[in-house]
Design a protein around this nucleic acid. Structure first.
Lengths: 242, 242
DNA sequence: CCCATATCTTTACATCGTAAAGATCGAATA
DNA sequence: TATTCGATCTTTACGATGTAAAGATATGGG
């Protein structure tokens, strides 16, 4: 038969020695393991290690470099190991996106906490939103690359839901009214949609380099953050936009 | 050597007979061509045929199904034919995105023309924007899938530039001032960024299914278009959003 | 102490993008 | 008109990827 997969996909020996977990490292290995007592057959916490490896690969090589096999190489395991933990590529991306949403939610919460005046509080979330996306462009890209995500996974569903709830809550605070979870008035829905659309749209356009044209034509040294601030606070001149 | 590419990749015979162009069809073929006088070696207008095939594949099978080989199959040519016309996958996607931007620009222009009152004119563009994306989700997805696009290609650059110019011009009309091409005030830039971010953000969230949560909680039968309209026209309650 | 099960590796294969070389046609040129 | 050259399309080939299936190995419960 035709020989395939013959070249350098083992990755067992040359990588960094596998960081065994406490339980696995504490007790001596029963059977002989490749003479050098390293790289035990069982990893111990491979799932988490794979997620961390995936995040490294994503931020280093971008979305195009984020493959199952690349993640396995980065983690120093066989190329089929991730499949066992995540089912398929969609599974891995979905779990990674869930990690991203949790990071994101934490960043938003901490930004809200550190704001004191009402004016600060109004801008804290949008600024933190854009800041997170700029600091983790790969992660943000994955979180909204819907075609390769499976929202039926509980971890992703919950993390994304929490993110949305935080947004709705913030909008409710602005309007000084409680936003219930099960029903919305058109005015409330419009306010949420406006806030989310504006910040999400700004972020994606910024990450895609689409705002460069605008930023270059603005007064010398105007940053994206300044543009965001102005976009959110400046009075609207004559009629609704566009 | 190991045999590869041995199965069903010819695609010459079973497909629809190639639609030869006028010049190719008008004169009889010189040499014998596979006994059945069809599928001439030279297509005649393969480049355009490939772009149309790509658009069909995109809207039928989605972005994941849009591969060089799938497009070649759809057009009934060998899998390497597209490479000659577009260089690589990025080339094909970029030219297809350019087609999308031209369609989009035409739709926007026609929407502006058919608007009469100032109120209509203010909403005509956003509505047409979202309507185009909903009618051609694959195309819209490609136009903003930046990682696989080459904006240095003149056709794409020009079409996207025209789209941006139309937006800037529309915002200028709203503000009743001329927006020059080379310099912007912060207020002008903020107005453009707000308009673009809002509509683009709304569109991507809608296409990604992220607005379903909101739409379901709104009064019975509220459509996305209604939400958009409300988002753009409703007064902003208390302070800047988010 | 032993085995069922979870975990990880090996092997295999279809598909994809892309490169390189061969085949065919159109048209300019002599 | 015959020939040659360049453009167009096909064939062949190769490495990479996702995924399935089967084999190897460790872990924990009986």
């Amino acid at each position: 038969m035709a020989k395939t997969d013959t070249k350098g996909e083992t990755a067992r020996s040359s990588r960094a020695p596998r960081k065994t977990t406490s339980t696995a490292a504490s007790r001596p290995a029963r059977r002989a393991m490749s003479a050098k007592t390293e790289t035990p057959y069982h990893h111990g916490a491979l799932r988490e290690a794979l997620l961390q490896a995936a995040e490294r690969v994503l931020e280093r090589d971008g979305l195009a470099g984020l493959t199952l096999r690349a993640v396995a190489r980065e983690a120093g395991v066989s190329h089929a190991a991730p499949t066992h933990h995540f089912g398929d590529l969609t599974g891995l991306l979905s779990e990674l996106a869930a990690v991203g949403f949790r990071q994101f939610n934490a960043a938003m919460a901490s930004a809200c906490d550190s704001a004191t005046t009402p004016f600060e509080r109004a801008l804290a979330r949008p600024k933190a939103y854009v800041a997170y996306a700029q600091a983790h462009p790969g992660m943000y890209g994955i979180m909204f690359r819907t075609e390769r995500l499976d929202y039926s996974r509980p971890s992703l569903h919950e993390a994304a839901e929490a993110s949305f709830a935080g947004l709705a809550n913030a909008v409710g605070m602005m309007r000084q009214e409680q936003i219930s979870g099960d029903a919305l008035t058109l005015s409330q829905g419009a306010a949420i949609a406006r806030a989310w659309s504006m910040v999400h749209g700004f972020t994606t356009l910024l990450l895609d380099g689409r705002l460069k044209d605008i930023l270059e034509r603005l007064p010398e040294g105007t940053t994206a953050e300044r543009l965001l601030e102005s976009m959110l606070t400046a009075p609207i001149t004559t009629k609704p936009p566009v």
